[in-house]
Design a protein around this nucleic acid. Structure first.
Length: 604
RNA sequence: GGCUCCAUAGUUCAAUGGAUAGAAUAGCGGUUUCCUAAACCGUAGAUCCAGGUUCGAUUCCUGGUGGAGCUACCA
């Protein structure tokens, strides 16, 4: 991803230039920028910024310590911001003048858009996520997908990208025919209304039913002496499902009618889940519409000689030159496969939006699929194929192993959301802090906290890594959790409210000369770091960076809050500064959590 | 078999090639006449193995071991 952000006024750049100057003056060489390593000084050491001098030794031809001393001396004399330094091994720790951090803080505090960039590219970035099948309800794996997609969209926006959130609904194919067939055979005309079952769950029930009946058929065929692969292929139920798919592609009225009805049940169900999860989309594509374009593209590719046809009439892409295998694009009976649809969807989207980049949030089990998708589009000479990114995330596993949706061994999304909110309610009632609030207020807070716990638990993990979801741990609201962060926000909010109640003037006054303690300076540094975090998380499409940052910030603030008086501080300047520091921390928490799709409660 | 990814405290997660590998949780021990104790402090505990590159490797390279995924005319 490309990120444009104006960082020219940064102290790092000033120091970098000065160090280049120092080296030039001391050793008479012009060193490249890459050789200048500046990092934040680690807390154990004294100083604000640290220059790593090892890369400079080849020019200085002196020991690390001496090189550091010489550069330190030069900076002390020639750079007004540098007030002192110390050298530890090859590390030159620079100490900045007293006024530096207060000034930095005021700049940050006065900038209401701190951390965010203005839109700098009119062509949007498309983010596809969710991508459900319409044959079963959403589960834990989808939750990770949805949270990642939504959060990545927010993060890209914060970095100045226009974003179009999109969804592709896999509403056609053999999977939905399985549910349809099972409902037709054993459904007794059940509907969400007659059963009071959420539509997606009802359809899912028949998908499971199909699998059960199918397994039974395969079993009896094997008992009859058939080999397993043969039996799996020839089971009458599967044949019937395939017949149904062919009828569907032909436009058979009966089949289409059934298909529409059942899909509508599912959509109504999904809408509820999406709403509860707090995610949404700007545009939704349906494979039942894009697969036709996909088929046309395949025909076109065949005509151009980019693709080839086998004797049985199936159409393939030959990717052996690219180190991959042959890939089927159209079955011998002329029906489309997954790849056909995705080709069509991609082209359709480019025609619709002229996107600058397109992010696909899809599980890592489809790495091969996206590799192939890009290659085929490239072969077909679409220049934008280089701008497709597969945000490949790892599986969510349960402590007892993998989820298996065919066996019904899944954590259902709706159940999980409800459980989290319930747990939040129980915890909160035990603590009794919301006594006196209305039911509506309380429920709103339970929701925020329960979902905050769930979302943070999932988003704090690096997307590309597979993760273990332990229900017991996910409902923990202490430690490195969403509620811990929310709690800190609520505390800050309460503090500021008290300040206002006591008519303390703090919002728009300058605190004058403040000598910051180390703790306060650490907090300011960490707040300042937020914009780097946003930038980096956008570059790497990684919300976990934001999540872990929020935690670090809150941890730091809690220590400050514990050790320092704020409202009781007698020095007016210090009091104002600490209130502003608290308010700023709150703003960053809220902003960061927003990027994760997590709401923060005003009290809890 | 081939390709890809992963391996860090008991457990769940961190660590742009940099200083003494951080947290959380579970364990043990503390803090509340005071701005929300869903908090804070202390204690103990880890880089799969063997080489290599480097001033410096959890990070990069090679080999091994262990695990996951893909390799479907399913999506």
């Amino acid at each position: 991803m490309t990120t444009i952000q104006n960082m020219k006024t940064e102290i790092e750049l000033i120091l970098e230039a000065k160090i280049i100057e120092a080296v030039k003056s001391l050793y008479e060489v012009e060193v490249p920028k890459q050789a200048i390593q500046i990092q934040n000084t680690r807390k154990e050491f004294t100083g604000d910024f640290t220059v790593v001098v090892f890369p400079l030794l080849r020019w200085s031809k002196k020991s690390p310590e001496l090189t550091a001393e010489m550069i330190g001396d030069f900076l002390l004399e020639n750079e007004i911001e540098v007030d002192g330094f110390n050298v530890v091994k090859g590390f030159l720790n620079l100490e900045l003048r007293n006024g530096f951090w207060p000034t930095q803080f005021q700049e940050i505090y006065d900038n209401p858009e701190f951390g965010r960039s203005v839109i700098n590219n009119e062509d949007p970035c498309l983010v596809e996520y969710s991508s459900p099948n319409t044959n079963k309800p959403l589960h834990l794996g989808h939750i990770r997908n949805n949270l990642l997609g939504y959060s990545v969209s927010k993060i890209l926006e914060a970095n100045g990208h226009k974003v179009v959130k999109t969804n592709i609904v896999n509403d056609r194919g053999i999977h939905i025919c399985k549910s349809m067939l099972a409902w037709k055979k054993w459904g007794n005309n059940e509907t969400p209304e007659t059963t009071c079952i959420k539509g997606d769950h009802l359809v899912g029930k028949y998908y499971v039913r199909f699998e059960q009946e199918y397994r039974a058929q395969v079993g009896s065929l094997i008992n009859g002496g058939m080999e397993k692969p043969e039996a799996e292929k020839n089971a009458p139920l599967l044949q019937e499902a395939h017949d149904m798919l062919r009828d569907w592609e032909k436009g058979d009225t009966e089949v289409i009618k059934l298909w529409k009805m059942m899909n509508d049940w599912v959509y109504a169900g999904f809408d509820i889940t999406y709403k509860n999860l707090g995610v949404d989309f700007d545009v939704i594509y349906y494979e039942s519409e894009t697969y036709k374009l996909g088929k046309k593209l395949v025909e076109k590719g065949l005509g151009k000689g980019v693709l080839f046809k086998k004797e049985d009439g199936s159409i393939w892409a030959d990717l052996k030159d690219e180190g991959l295998d042959e890939k089927l694009l159209l079955r011998s009976d002329g029906t489309a496969v997954y790849m056909t649809q995705d080709l069509g969807t991609a082209v359709q989207r480019y025609n619709d939006y002229h996107f600058s980049d397109h992010v696909y949030v899809v599980g890592n089990e489809q790495n091969y699929h996206f590799q192939v998708l890009k290659l085929i589009l490239k072969k077909m000479a679409y220049p934008w194929s280089d701008h497709l990114f597969h945000l490949s995330y790892g599986m969510v596993e349960l402590p007892e192993g993998k989820m298996k949706s065919r066996e019904g061994k899944v954590v259902d999304a709706d159940d999980l959301i409800e459980e989290m909110i319930d747990t939040a309610r129980v915890m909160s009632e035990e603590l009794g802090k919301l006594d006196g609030y209305t039911e509506v207020e309380k429920n709103s807070i339970y929701r925020k906290v329960g979902l905050g716990a769930l979302k943070y638990f999932i988003l704090k993990v690096d997307p590309k890594k597979s993760m273990t979801f332990d229900p017991r741990e996910s409902v923990d609201f202490n430690g490195n959790t969403g509620p811990f962060i929310q709690y800190t926000y609520a505390r800050i909010n309460s503090l500021l409210k008290k300040a206002d109640e006591r008519s303390i003037e703090w919002k728009n006054v300058s605190p004058g000369d403040v000598v910051m303690s180390d703790k306060e300076k650490d907090l300011v540094k960490l707040i300042r770091h937020y914009k780097f975090v946003i930038k980096e998380s956008s570059k790497s499409l990684n919300p976990a960076l934001v999540a872990n940052y929020c935690y670090d910030l809150v941890k730091e603030y809690n220590q400050f809050y514990h050790d320092y008086s704020i409202l009781r501080e007698e020095n007016q300047d210090f009091k104002v500064f600490r209130l502003q520091l608290s308010a700023m921390t709150g703003r960053v928490i809220k902003s960061g959590m927003e990027l994760l799709g997590i709401e923060v409660p005003e009290k809890m």
